[in-house]
Design a binder for these strands. Structure first.
Lengths: 170, 170
DNA sequence: CAGACCAGTTTCAATCTGCAACCGGTTGAG
DNA sequence: CTCAACCGGTTGCAGATTGAAACTGGTCTG
């Protein structure tokens, strides 16, 4: 146990790593939104993270081995952020946090569809999703099932449904 | 969706409630340590929370309906904090956070035994634990199995093992 | 009635947060 | 070649949050 830790409790040590208001948001956007560049993470996120906070968190998450950073071969000053095995193993944590949030917070329909599918899919789906993330981020062989695709198309379907409803309302 | 939220994403909304360095620590101590009073939470916790922070978090968690507070009939100025149904449903979240922490952080042996048992016990054990917590905190009928007892005695066994080892070392 | 115990509160310095403006370098279109 | 858009950040600053330490007003016990 390295000095500077408050205790050797697994919950505490985990919170020391990801127990703040932004770290998991950043990892979520890389994981579920496949946002890999600084600008994508900044513009794309619903929560409008400030650039200095994002820069700080990216640096920190790379240090903690929850993200890795490499140069984009297609563009000299573009950086690509990827998940690591450690952050891929956060999938069950995200699933449980999402499941809890869906029951106990005022979630929006479009943004909670992924949490719902992940909850209904259970550990088997999480495992398939993790295998796919290893393919996307770590260069592992592509698995047969694309959970990412399932989640993404369900999300887009919900967004379309919302837009249609908004249209009829006018 | 109430104003003031950054977004309607379940992950984000959950983090807005419990995504800080102390809230889950406090709930953990009530849940796994059965610490119900201010002084117990303050003295007992490994992480030595400051009294003003603890007071602030308790107030906030009560507002968020993650804890409830009532007077202790045996002592006019003693307050008893209890889990609510919402926080009892955080059991799977704690289980996953603990499981992740055990793999990816430098946990201590004694403090990680509970996380290990909870991980090995799986969802069936979580369910039994939640039933027991409802008995302890919400006055539900006492279930047959005491997961709390299993966790506690395993922890004490580990502490004793550590003390014995320290003794022989001298 | 003294001393321990109770749940906090106060004070203050240090750190962290988040907004807005800015930076130098890179790229692609004309 | 020029220029505008884009790249991943950095800087400056005000306000909020954190955390250590001392303290408060009240209650219970011997």
């Amino acid at each position: 146990m390295k000095a500077g830790h408050r205790s050797g409790c697994p919950i505490n040590l985990t919170l020391e790593m990801i127990g703040d208001r932004w770290s998991l948001i950043v990892i979520r956007d890389v994981m579920f939104g496949n946002r890999r560049h600084f600008r994508e993470l900044r513009r794309g996120s619903e929560e409008k993270i400030a650039s200095n906070i994002l820069a700080d968190r990216l640096k920190r998450l790379v240090q903690l081995d929850l993200l890795s950073r490499r140069d984009d071969p297609s563009h000299a000053q573009k950086a690509i952020y990827s998940l690591t095995e450690s952050s891929i193993q956060l999938v069950p944590v995200f699933a449980q946090l999402g499941a809890w949030g869906r029951r106990h917070t005022p979630v929006s329909r479009e943004l909670s569809i992924r949490a719902r599918l992940l909850e209904e899919g259970g550990p088997a789906m999480w495992k398939d999703f993790m295998a796919e993330l290893r393919a996307i981020h770590l260069g592992a062989p592509q698995p047969a099932r694309s959970v990412f695709g399932e989640l993404q198309s369900a999300y887009l379907r919900e967004v379309a449904r919302g837009a249609r409803a908004a249209g009829t309302r006018r």
